[in-house]
């Protein structure tokens, strides 16, 4: 019961967030300098064309009316049409967003697979050589821009060793995974650094806790103590951090997709910016923000499941 009402409350909290996302996106596109139609058509735009595009975008109506139209359209799944590609934005999103989600999902999985054991290892070898090396390496990783990491991996493992394709998305699911491997590693690097660092300090905070001593005094096996008592408690804060990092990950995906020529939402975003395709930019911004808030929801629920004290 308590958990059900917690979940419901948490879902209701998303409503103002999503409204705010819509307001920001709306304001962003409409209030910042530069009339979209003029910008789109350039200085060569004829009066009639500008009026046509303005009408198409609903820009000839009062702002409040525009906003209401906008909201109504968004909720009926109508995000307008791409100016450059002349297809509905939703069609583009359905086509491109899954690619980006697969990429970030793989990156997140790789980051977790690397950071959890390494964070553990570093914490248990606190201040010894291996701890220092692991932390130093990740600190360097944290200072590397995504596009640079991507370029280096691409050249070395792709062009030089021919282990992986030098870009693209491939055909069929297995081929997708193969094509996305290097990009996912690229994205995973800084996330693993952040997670590793957080987990290490969380473990060091937990490992001296009295309940760990109590568990040891019960004669439990070492791995039971580490997994059930140390890791489960330590990972709670890491889960929150992971949720917060998903936004960073999606931002990184924009760059990674550009570097590796992957036809995902990020690549679409950059193309739309070059092409001044406002409806697409708007649609992408909204849907990526909604993805992030869904991930927040998921990590909050996961955290509540891990830590029953939260659910009250």
């Amino acid at each position: 019961m308590a958990s059900l009402s917690f979940i419901l409350r948490r879902i209701l909290q998303m409503i103002p967030t999503i409204l705010f996302i819509l307001v920001v996106t709306f304001v962003l596109v409409r209030l910042l300098p530069g009339d979209p139609a003029t910008v789109m058509l350039g200085d060569r735009g004829r009066e009639a064309d500008i009026a046509r595009i303005n009408a198409q975008l609903g820009l000839d109506k009062p702002l409040v009316v525009q906003f209401l139209y906008f909201i109504a359209n968004v909720f009926s799944g109508n995000l307008g049409n791409s100016i450059a590609l002349r297809v509905p934005v939703t069609t583009l999103l359905v086509e491109r967003l899954p690619v980006t989600l697969l990429l970030t999902g793989m990156a997140a999985a790789i980051a977790v697979i690397f950071s959890v054991p390494l964070g553990f290892w570093a914490a248990l070898r606190q201040n010894r050589a291996s701890d220092t090396i692991i932390r130093g390496t990740f600190q360097v990783g944290l200072s590397m821009p995504v596009f640079y990491v991507g370029l280096l991996l691409l050249i070395f493992f792709g062009a030089h060793l021919h282990w992986f394709p030098i870009g693209g998305y491939g055909h069929g699911f297995g081929d997708h995974l193969y094509h996305l491997f290097l990009p996912a590693v690229t994205l995973a690097l800084s996330l693993s650094a952040v997670l590793m660092r957080n987990l290490r300090s969380a473990i060091l905070n937990v490992i001296d806790a009295e309940y760990v001593d109590f568990a040891r005094s019960k004669g439990l096996r070492g791995y039971v103590i580490l997994v059930r008592h140390v890791l489960r408690n330590a990972v709670i804060s890491t889960v929150t951090l992971f949720g917060l990092q998903v936004g960073v990950l999606l931002g990184g995906a924009v760059i990674t997709e550009t570097v590796f020529a992957i036809p995902g939402a990020g690549r679409l975003m950059i193309d739309s910016i070059y092409g001044r395709d406002y409806p697409v930019i708007q649609g992408l911004t909204i849907s990526l923000a909604i993805v992030v808030s869904l991930i927040f929801l998921a990590t909050d629920l996961l955290q509540a499941w891990l830590d029953p004290r939260i659910m009250r």
Partner: peptide, 16 residues
């Protein structure tokens, strides 16, 4: 502080 805050008492007896 000696009881694990995130495990029900059952698990903490049972593991023993």
């Amino acid at each position: 502080t000696a009881l694990n805050p995130i495990l029900p008492i059952r698990v903490q007896i049972d593991e023993n």
